[in-house]
C-alpha cells in the first residue's frame, strides 16, 4: 500500500509535469508567435521600397562595397562583382560610425568646466574629479557607441537589402505584357557565401512570362557575395531566407 501511496503521488506528478510543460510551452509558443507577429510586422520586415538612387544617399556608404559597373552592362557583373567587393567591404562600414559619434564627446566636456571655479579643491581632489569626469565621459561615449552599434546593425541590414535590390533591379527585364501593379512574390534561400540555393514562387502574378522574368532576374544574379561580410547573426536573422516582391511601378502603364 505504502509503496502504492507513495507511488500514487508520483504518478500524477509525472502526468502533471508534462501537462504543465506543454501548457507552458504553448503559452511560450503563443507568446513567441505573437511577439514575432507584432515585432516583425513593425520592425523586422525591412521593406526596401525606395528607388535605388535615393538609397545611395541614405545608406552606410554602400557604394564603397558595391561593384560600380553593375547597373548598366548586364553581361559583365558576374565577373566583376566577385573580386571587387572583398577588399573594400571590410574597411568601408567601419570608418562610418566614427564621424557620427564625434559631436558627442565634444559636447560633454564643456558643461563640466563650469563647477571648477570652486576654490577649495586640492590637487588630489582635482585629479579625482578629472578621473571621474573622464570615466563619466567614457561611459557616455560607450553608451552612445552601443546605441550607435544597434543603429548600425539595422542600417547595415537595410543597406545590404538595398544592395540586393539594386542587383536584382539591374537584371530585371520585364516582358512587354508586364503592367504596373502586377505582383510576384519569390522566396529565396541563401547560404553564408551569399550564394542563392533556391528560388521559389510564393505568390504568382498569374502571368507566366512576368513570373519567369522575376525568377530569371534572381537567377542571373546567382549570388550576393557581399553578404559574406555580414556578421553571422545578421545573415541568419535577415538573409538566410528572405523574399523578393516584384511589383513594377515605372512602366508606361
Amino acid at each position: 500500500m505504502g509503496t502504492s501511496i507513495y507511488a500514487k503521488p508520483t504518478l500524477p506528478r509525472i502526468i502533471v509535469r508534462p501537462a504543465l510543460a506543454s501548457l507552458a510551452l504553448h503559452a511560450l509558443m503563443l507568446l513567441a508567435l505573437t511577439v514575432n507577429w507584432a515585432s516583425q510586422d513593425d520592425s523586422r520586415v525591412i521593406t526596401v521600397k525606395t528607388i535605388p538612387k535615393s538609397i545611395n544617399a541614405k545608406l552606410v556608404d554602400i557604394s564603397d562595397f558595391q561593384p560600380k559597373p553593375k547597373p548598366k552592362p548586364k553581361p559583365k557583373p558576374k565577373t566583376v562583382s566577385k573580386p571587387k567587393p572583398k577588399p573594400k567591404a571590410k574597411a568601408a562600414p567601419k570608418p562610418k560610425p566614427k564621424p557620427v559619434t564625434k559631436p558627442k564627446p565634444v559636447a560633454k566636456p564643456k558643461p563640466k568646466p563650469e563647477p571648477k571655479p570652486e576654490p577649495k579643491l586640492t590637487a588630489a581632489e582635482l585629479a579625482d574629479l578629472a578621473r571621474a569626469e573622464l570615466s563619466h565621459a567614457m561611459e557616455a561615449e560607450e553608451q552612445e557607441q552601443q546605441q550607435q552599434a544597434t543603429a548600425t546593425a539595422g542600417e547595415l541590414a537595410a543597406s545590404y537589402a538595398a544592395l540586393i535590390q539594386r542587383t536584382v533591379v539591374s537584371r530585371w527585364s520585364r516582358p512587354p505584357s508586364a503592367r504596373n501593379g502586377m505582383e510576384v512574390l519569390l522566396a529565396l534561400q541563401l547560404i553564408p557565401t551569399g550564394e542563392i540555393v533556391s528560388v521559389t514562387v510564393v505568390k504568382s502574378s498569374g502571368n507566366s512570362a512576368f513570373d519567369r522574368s522575376a525568377i530569371n532576374a534572381v537567377e542571373k544574379a546567382e549570388r550576393f557575395p557581399e553578404l559574406q561580410k555580414l556578421p553571422a547573426g545578421e545573415f541568419e536573422k535577415n538573409f538566410r531566407r528572405f523574399r523578393l516582391l516584384f511589383r513594377p511601378e515605372d512602366l508606361r502603364y
Partner: peptide
C-alpha cells in the same frame, strides 16, 4: 516551430523597377 512560423515575417525586399534589356 517558432522559426518556421517566423518565416512568415521574413525580410521582404521590393523590386519596383527594372532595366528591360533585350
Amino acid at each position: 516551430l517558432v522559426v518556421s512560423l517566423g518565416a512568415k515575417a521574413e525580410l521582404v525586399i521590393e523590386i519596383t523597377q527594372g532595366v528591360d534589356d533585350p
